[in-house]
Design a protein around this nucleic acid. Structure first.
Lengths: 198, 198
DNA sequence: GGCCGGCGATAACAAAAGCTAAGAAATGAG
DNA sequence: CTCATTTCTTAGCTTTTGTTATCGCCGGCC
């Protein structure tokens, strides 16, 4: 089964071959080399993409020229300037490949048409939005409830080990809302308190 | 027009009288006195409510007995343990009235049935989830990108003046992810730097 | 009126995080 | 293999925040 069809299937198992066809015909493969962008801040890119392989980051440029990375994407994640698709505005952020990445891309306009023509896509859209809302809300809550050290420990304990294994530490620091220097100190503390107990 | 119907209408103007009827018949008015809960942490409450009047807070209890308030709700906001509705799990948080509050309540099970029976509700569900996702994402980004003082200034500049006008300051501090003492200091700094320039 | 509890400002101290810089370790390129 | 770049750690210092406690203000309640 096509990876995108499998992705849809996880949310809407009732998806038929007839539902799948119009989307399948519109798919475009795309390759991003390390450092390439799926979208840059300021661009409008009303496209969605499923990642087949690789890793990407979402980052915001700041007035002072610095960047802050707030999300990571791996295989089987959807990639898009979702706010831009919904509002028609240019993207506030960039999405950049951290390693060589393979995508299949389709237009947001097509998805909108499928929302109207095939109810199963409307349901898919609802479920995807709900799923992401739950995740984003949990992460916001973590930011508000936990200290930086607690957030690092939570990341250790969570299923998101890919982030720790495959992402440079200064970007993980951004993701946790601290500086890389501070994360390094936290790691030192956590490692030490681990060895203390026994 | 009924306030809930007006709320629906903002997302799905195509909603017909026939669409509205089954929901209208199931509505239950409810009153919360100051301090009453719509849902407590640990309860399962698969209901949605539209606020007609009043103000509520969403808060997480912590192991140490403290509480952290992360959201506020006012007139014309939907109220629900959304994660609990979606997963069937008990709520992680409480929702409590800060002032006397009027609600209209209906069951999540009904909404699920309407998702199946009337496509306009499926679309409504998608749009509401997308809308809230945008808001939550913006707030998470603010937490990751801005310092506490910048977040306070952003709140001042935003359209959310209700929060500053109607919510006790120590709860606003929670909402911004700082302590009440720190927010008090920040307010002092901001007030001083305002008067400096002229 | 007087009492009391919640709320907000402030101070003093401790703890943590930010900033800058330097150096070690790992990674890549030629 | 070597050189250069990136990444990570560590240190010294500054700034901010957290913690605890006190005090004043205000509003509700008897």
């Amino acid at each position: 089964m096509h990876p995108l069809r499998a992705y849809l299937h996880r949310f809407v198992p009732e998806l038929t071959e007839a539902d799948w066809q119009p989307l399948a015909e519109a798919l475009r493969p795309r390759h991003l080399a390390r450092g390439d962008h799926f979208v840059r801040a300021g661009e409008h890119r009303p496209e969605l993409a499923l990642m087949l392989h690789g890793s990407c980051r979402l980052y915001y440029p700041r007035p002072d020229g610095e960047e802050r990375t707030t999300y990571f994407f791996f295989e089987n994640h959807l990639l898009a300037d979702y706010p831009g698709c919904l509002t028609g505005q240019p993207s506030q952020f960039g999405i950049q490949a951290l390693t060589d990445t393979e995508l299949v891309v389709f237009d947001y306009a097509l998805l909108r048409r499928l929302y109207d023509e095939r109810p199963v896509y409307e349901r898919f859209g609802r479920l995807v939005a709900e799923y992401h809302l739950l995740g984003t809300d949990a992460r916001l809550t973590e930011q508000l409830l936990l200290s930086p050290e607690e957030r690092y420990r939570a990341l250790l304990a969570s299923g998101k080990t890919k982030i720790l294994e495959r992402i440079p530490q200064h970007l993980v620091a951004n993701y946790l809302g601290v500086t890389s220097v501070s994360l390094s100190r936290i790691r030192g503390r956590v490692a030490r308190t681990r060895n203390q107990k026994p």
